[in-house]
Amino acid sequence: MHSNQSNPALAVTGLHKKYGDIPVLSNLELSISRGAIHGLVGLNGSGKTTTIECILGLQRFQSGTVSVMGHAPADLHRAKGKVVAIFDTPSLHPNLTVRQNLQLARSLCPTPVRTAQDVEKMLGVSRYSNYKVRQLSLGNKRRTSIAQALLGNPELIVLDEPFNGLDAEGVDDVLRLIQQFNQDHNTSFFLCSHQLPYLEQICSHIAILHKGTIAVSGTIADLLGASRNVALLSTAQLQQAEDLLRTMPDVQVAGVDPDGFLRIQLGNMTSAALNQALVSRQIGVTELHLQRASLAGLFRQISNEVRT
């Protein structure tokens, strides 16, 4: 994977967006290196789709600067097909067939490198090519919508909830295509999704959007590395346990979960050593388990931290 920090595929600085008097995005900062697969996650209503719409020039924002492949959002049409987007709704003409929709998309592509038939095969919709889009299932509409983006070799593909409505095979196809385009053509991706395991599987970078600002951003390895070795402890003597843990140099108390578990950052200490330390101070351990570091866990943790 290549990256080019000096000339990013997407750079957002100080983005502010309000709907009326309600702030949706506040001082949003985001940078996507060329060749990166960058995921954006956030709770419902956190501003993900608004971020994408502002980046693509589909709605105006109050202040800030956005550069997409060196173009301002309002001038994105001047990028001449270097940027394409796939939206959370399929965005197809319902009364045209799959083939006609793809032909239309091809006519919008300045340098098409694949035919409609090629991309139909890639996304597994060849047998529906003469079906009108309104006759298709949501999954096949989604596949057709993704196929539209692959007629050329765009340099940045923005995807909003690309896995919605797809079956397991469809998800695998999309994940494979994202990786293939990224490796073969150095295509940058900006994905916005609630499907955290899929993002964890393919993204090189992740940003977590919370209440209109980027709460955390970085490579997957860095972000998950920080949340590794987290132990969850359940005990009847919660306060005593917490007091004890705060005196220990190699552990850090990260807080109490909504369901009563004490969240402990272990550092180099093992869970067995922790258990022994607690028991030796007469603190009964009801439950103690290590939490596997995952994007979903990190997301929940950050959402809770920001809430509290």
Binding site: L56, G57, L58, D75, L76, H77, K80, G81, V83, V84, A85, F87, T89, P90, S91, L92, H93, P94, A105, L108, C109, P110, Q148
Partner: peptide, 17 residues
């Protein structure tokens, strides 16, 4: 409503066009 205009704006044509 369909969302098809967005593709046109992003890929090739300005809004006035």
């Amino acid at each position: 409503d369909l969302g098809t205009l967005r593709h046109l704006f992003i890929r090739r044509a300005s809004r006035p066009s």
